[in-house]
Simulated scan of single mutants.
Amino acid sequence: MAVKATSAPPGGLTPKQKKRKDTWKLMKQNYQLYFFLVPAVVFIVLFMYVPLYGLQIAFKNYRTGDGIWGSAWVGLKWFEKFFSTPRCWEIIRNTLTISVYSLVAGFPIPIILAIILNYVKNLKFKKFAQTVTYMPYFISTVVLVAMMTLFFSPTSGFVNTIIQAFGGEPIYFMGSSALFPHMYVWSGIWQSMGYSSIIYIAALSGVSPELHESAVIDGANILQRIWHIDIPTIMPTMIILLIMSCGNIMNVGYEKVYLMQHDLIIDVSEIISTYVYRVGLISNQFSFSTAIGLMNNLINFTILVAANKISNKVFGSGLW
């Protein structure tokens, strides 16, 4: 049987080669723009990739005198030590409790705030509301915890003063194990919701006014317009931010927890990041703390990949 000869592509290049050639041509034409990427690339390489060299101490018995290369290999010794620690699962449970609680309670609130602000017609009030909700984000963590300590003090805090005015007993909010997760999560939501809503406000600004005009003509109320116009518009943004939040589910802010932490609530406030601080910087167990941090990041990476895969299957979009 005769084989039909195939003609060569125009210019003698395959589609893949032609695409590569066009890409290089485009880069040469706009080379000035790529120079702006150089500082960012250098920053990422120096501060994100070069430090990965030090991760090998998680598998070594690191001693500062011997250096990284001179320290002896111990394999998975430090990982086994962590999982055999009596408080291991308590620390993991505390981390997941605070992180999942923060995600479930905190993720929808900036979206709701952005939608509310989007429907405010009075521009002066809208700007005032935006400023009021943004400002807490710029309060330092130390000041925020100090404010909480003063406001919720059982002796002089105005919250307990109000409780006593209604005949109740003062509550030691900052010393209650049961209240610690709520204090941490809701103070964080109050501080960050305005700043987190900016990206949703920007996404909502891209909604065509004609869609809302058509919906109003068809008799749609505000809730129907939000559900059928606004939510679908910002859905890709919501998905991306949710995936990124899932990828940080094991990373609970160290500074705020450490400032709120004391002996009365150590059973619920000891999380991975504070534990790493204690064993790494205070006890100088560098290999042990590095192993815990590496394990933590591997879990985050696994959750990120899984969340992205689920998102691609369910919603048809993801980070990649």
Score class of each variant (00 low, 15 high):
Y200W: 13
L319S: 07
I240R: 02
G175M: 05
Q17C: 07
S283W: 13
K25V: 12
D267V: 10
S269H: 04
Q191M: 11
F166P: 04
I92D: 00
F83H: 04
M27C: 08
A114W: 06
N94W: 04
G12V: 09
F128Q: 07
W89T: 07
H228N: 08
M193N: 10
T131L: 13
S197P: 07
P86W: 03
I163V: 14
F82G: 03
W320C: 06
L103E: 04
K19D: 09
I222A: 13
Q56G: 10
I282F: 11
P170Y: 02
T23M: 13
I189G: 07
N61I: 04
I266W: 09
V120Q: 11
M48Q: 15
I68F: 10
D22S: 14
L150Y: 15
S192N: 14
L37V: 10
F138T: 12
M238F: 14
K313A: 11
V120A: 06
L264Q: 10
D66Q: 12
A220T: 09
S84D: 05
K313N: 12
V120W: 02
K18T: 15
H228T: 10
N284D: 08
T290Y: 05
I303T: 00
Y258D: 07
D267F: 02
I57W: 08
V216T: 14
I226G: 02
M148H: 03
A2R: 14
I91G: 01
P108E: 08
L319I: 12
T23S: 13
S208R: 12
I299L: 00
Y275A: 08
V132F: 06
A114N: 05
Y62K: 02
K124I: 13
A2I: 15
P51D: 07
M235D: 06
G168L: 05
Y258F: 15
A215Q: 07
F288P: 02
F315G: 02
V305M: 00
M48I: 02
A202P: 08
E80G: 13
V38H: 08
L113N: 05
I98R: 02
H182V: 13
N297I: 01
L96R: 03
V145E: 10
Q285E: 15
G293F: 01
P136H: 09
T97K: 11
G280Q: 05
I198E: 11
N94H: 08
W78S: 01
T141D: 11
G194C: 10
I234F: 05
Y31P: 01
M183C: 13
K19M: 14
R87G: 02
L46H: 03
F288C: 03
M174K: 03
E80H: 08
N308H: 02
Y258Q: 11
S205V: 08
M250I: 00
Y200H: 12
L37Y: 15
N300L: 00
K126Y: 07
K25I: 11
N118K: 09
C88L: 08
T133E: 05
V3D: 14
A114T: 09
V42L: 14
G219W: 10
K19R: 15
Y137N: 13
K127Q: 12
F128A: 15
V279N: 06
M238E: 06
I229S: 06
W89S: 06
Y184V: 09
I91R: 00
K60A: 05
F315E: 06
I222V: 14
Q17H: 09
S71T: 09
G168D: 03
M250F: 03
C246G: 00
R93K: 15
